[in-house]
């Protein structure tokens, strides 16, 4: 597996689009909390009157809220990594290098494994970056830090990892299906609105099915946390059934990729 990962990384390491996208993604991860803090500071300096309320006291980036808040926002950045995967896989088809890889002695399963290894590495690396960004941001900005609270809610980093991993595998599947990068990006953007429309059209007594659609299950991993600041109730835990559904989808997508590649002429 490590050998297969190395092969795929050799392909990507000197690929400019890959480096640019990964770099941009990392910069965004690190800079979002900084910009939010700077924005709050700016509000304060501007002397914005919130009826005597200090904007720096909104606990968006304080332990324990920070974990769910940031990971929720970060899930929107997954498109950057999705494009990395789309390019990495569609290039293999457009340059026909998948064909040459197999001629040279890779099996079709090896090829899938090497791409999955990269997806796993990207998801894991990204989750690690998110974890440390949150940890450091929280340590800096939380007033009256209680060390017992630091890791409360950090399970959302795991949810973020799972979300990214499943989303990238879904992207991998779409790319194997459509082969061309532009078409795949288009389909990926189109998919979620289609899913939402179908969910919206479900009759009331069939409503629960909506939760089992792939992208819906992903969004249920990290629910939107911000309504809590206007005193609404939110889901501040990871729903177990959402995790189960996502895991099932990961298996299904990998099986579909395998089926598609196993039976096709390259």
């Amino acid at each position: 597996m490590l050998r297969l990962l190395k092969i795929d990384l050799t392909k990507l390491a000197n690929y400019r689009a890959f480096n640019v996208l990964i770099g941009l993604y990392a910069v965004l991860i690190v800079s979002i909390p900084i910009s939010v803090i700077e924005f709050l500071k700016w509000l304060k300096v501007k002397g914005a009157e919130f009826e005597g309320f200090d904007p720096m006291k909104i606990p968006v980036l304080h332990f324990t809220d920070i974990w769910q808040n940031t990971t929720y926002v970060y899930t929107f950045l997954r498109f950057f990594l999705a494009i990395v995967i789309i390019l990495s896989v569609s290039n293999e088809f457009s340059y026909k290098t998948i064909r040459q890889n197999i001629i040279d002695g890779l099996s079709r399963v090896d090829f899938i494994k090497s791409k999955l290894a990269t997806i796993l590495l990207l998801s894991f690396g990204s989750a690690a970056l998110v974890f440390f960004t949150c940890l450091i941001t929280g340590l800096i900005y939380t007033p009256n830090l209680d060390y017992g609270d630091i890791f409360v809610g950090s399970e959302f980093v795991f949810a973020y990892f799972l979300d990214l991993f499943a989303f990238l595998i879904f992207t991998f599947f779409l790319t194997v299906l459509f082969k061309r990068s532009a078409l795949t990006v288009f389909m990926l953007l189109l998919y979620r609105p289609i899913e939402l429309t179908i969910i919206g059209l479900l009759p009331d007594n069939w409503d629960f099915i909506g939760d089992y659609f792939p992208m819906q299950a992903l969004t249920r991993l990290i629910e939107i946390p911000f309504p809590r600041y206007w005193f609404q109730e939110i889901q501040d835990y990871i729903a177990f059934d959402a995790v189960a559904v996502v895991l099932v989808y990961i298996v299904l997508f990998v099986a579909a990729i395998h089926y598609k590649l196993k039976n096709s002429d390259l």
Binding site: R3, K6, I7, N14, K96, T97, R99, I103, D104, G105
Partner: peptide, 24 residues
Amino acid sequence: LETPIFYPYLSATKNLEIVAQIKG
């Protein structure tokens, strides 16, 4: 088979490194 197939954005050495890794 047919036309030479390599990663166009990689050097000859890098391309052959991939082949060497695949072939072990």
